[in-house]
């Protein structure tokens, strides 16, 4: 599993969801959480983060810059080619998952979700990273 010191960036335009995701992350033992309220701000936070962000959990449907646009931007940047990027979607957006996979999303999760589900997903992502090395 990811190290608890991994910096996690949580992006969602709903404060409620940011709080919820952060809370679940904290329950999983992560301590270093950063929040952003849309894709554009998320990018800013990601690009300027010191020490760097180790995992992004982003909503899809947001104003300014959607989670999908952010994902493409992230993957288009040499620094973030391998950055674990988990997309949070609602059930009605599932068709987009295909696009997200093509764009290089690490995994996705349907809201609402429990701590266990997120843990499973993160473990899957982590396993894949290890396998890739």
């Amino acid at each position: 599993m990811f190290d608890p010191s991994t910096r996690i960036l949580v992006i969602d335009d709903m404060m409620t969801m940011r709080k919820l995701v952060s809370k679940v992350c904290k329950e999983l033992g992560f301590m270093d959480l950063t929040e952003a309220s849309d894709g554009a701000l998320g990018w800013e936070a990601l690009a300027n983060a010191k020490p760097p962000i180790g995992l992004v959990i982003s909503d899809w449907n947001m104003p300014n810059c959607t989670g999908f646009d952010l994902l493409k931007r992230v993957r288009g940047d040499q620094r973030f080619k391998e950055l674990p990027f988990v997309m949070v979607t609602a059930e009605s957006e599932n068709s987009q998952v295909i696009d997200a996979i093509k764009a290089g999303v690490s995994n996705y999760i349907i809201k609402p979700f429990t701590a266990d589900t997120l843990k499973e997903k993160l473990e899957a992502v982590h396993k894949k990273i290890l396998a890739g090395k």
């Binding site: 952003a36 554009a40 104003p63 300014n64 810059c65 987009q96």
Partner: peptide, 12 residues
């Protein structure tokens, strides 16, 4: 996907 942002609103 939603159209790209026309104005980058920084202040949330």
């Amino acid at each position: 996907p939603a159209p790209p942002a026309t104005t980058a609103k920084v202040a949330a």
